[in-house]
Design a protein around this nucleic acid. Structure first.
Lengths: 204, 204
DNA sequence: CTTGTATTGTACTAAAGAGTATATAACCCC
DNA sequence: GGGGTTATATACTCTTTAGTACAATACAAG
């Protein structure tokens, strides 16, 4: 009944840190994809047994959804900071360079779990595939909205097609994700980012 | 001993057409990926039983390899014809537009099996993933060589970096593959292709 | 028509998949 | 310290996985 109960400290306390375990699970899904990640892979990476996984996270699908939710909100993410750049061009530049650097970073799996988590997949993964498609579409819409804002702020010509610009940007970033997961180096991807920027309208 | 024996007509004849069955298998791998495609999926799509599959194609991995070999050599492919365009710019244009149209074509699964066949995957698929990475790298090298030829033929400035141009082109195409498999329309992808072309050096 | 060869369908195997039952252990509140 | 509650580890379930054994069948060559 207590409305201020924080973390419900009743019963045997959990012997593992949920956040740490979630990050380990993310690494597994990122590397192997939803279909390719078995519960054995997950539990051994997380350092827990199956009943602990199920009681803490529900099931494999819910674990995946929580993992990508964390992924999108990570402080080291490149997407949200880029949107806060002052001009549309700088948003594109920051996002492309951020993607190139982040996705080739060897301190975590290469590429982007939002892309490679479930691209072509079994029926069992159809749900998470849909979620990933929605999230990517959502991101594209955020970029488009940012470019619409730029038009109003005057740093992007009203003649430009915000939606097409956003789609182009996200397409290149998806391509960078594929290249990164194929082993491309940071320099190679940064070069690609710079080439892609040449297409982007610059005000000055 | 006969050196001219064609198709070895001894024993019970095969009751199905291997090429047709291979094309059905390709569709399954294209849609579900290597990990997501089960033998039941494959045999039912191919209209044969497992022993027929194993005797005709070896095993799941060899079937996949034969399927992508066919995929790459299909007459409707966009890659090889693009390389035969007269100038580097036209190669890029033809390839980007071809990718946009081919990958959104609804007469077969959307996207590109060379990308989505095995991106993030289980250990069981590690071998085919490596093969796909190699093939994509090979394609990139073919584009680079074509641009080197263009330099010699004079339609591409010797100051350009063929390798970087090829990588940029292939990155955008990979991105288009992701967008297509996420449901993007032909028009949307053609727009992306045109935007990407703006970065490409044009002679005239 | 017999013999040899290769394919076919059914039925099987062994392993791995996701998820769960249960008994035990660890904690808080009273 | 006892009762209620929750997490833990082991051991289990049932389904699906990739791959195969085998008997029956269909053809070509002789």
């Amino acid at each position: 009944m207590s409305a201020v109960s924080c973390t419900a400290a009743v019963g045997r306390p959990r012997a593992f840190d949920m956040q740490t375990a979630l990050e380990k699970a993310l690494d597994v899904f990122w590397t192997k994809g939803y279909d390719g990640a078995s519960l054995s892979d997950l539990t051994s990476a997380m350092g827990i047994n199956k009943p602990s996984l199920y009681s803490a996270f529900g099931n494999k699908e819910q674990l995946f959804l929580k993992a990508i939710e964390f992924y999108e909100s990570r402080p080291c993410g490149f997407f949200k900071p880029a949107l806060e750049q002052p001009t549309a061009y700088e948003v594109a530049e920051c996002m492309l360079l951020g993607a190139a650097k982040s996705m080739s970073d060897t301190s975590h799996p290469q590429g982007c779990v939002m892309v490679q988590g479930a691209l072509s997949c079994s029926e069992a993964a159809a749900g998470v595939k849909e979620v990933l498609i929605d999230r990517r579409q959502q991101s594209e819409s955020e970029v488009r909205d940012r470019f619409e804002l730029a038009k109003n702020q005057g740093d992007l010509s009203k003649d430009e097609d915000s939606e097409a610009l956003a789609r182009y940007l996200c397409t290149v970033i998806n391509g960078i994700a594929i290249q990164a997961s194929s082993g491309a180096t940071e320099k190679q991807l940064v070069d690609v980012a710079h080439m892609a920027l040449k297409s982007f309208p610059r005000n000055s």
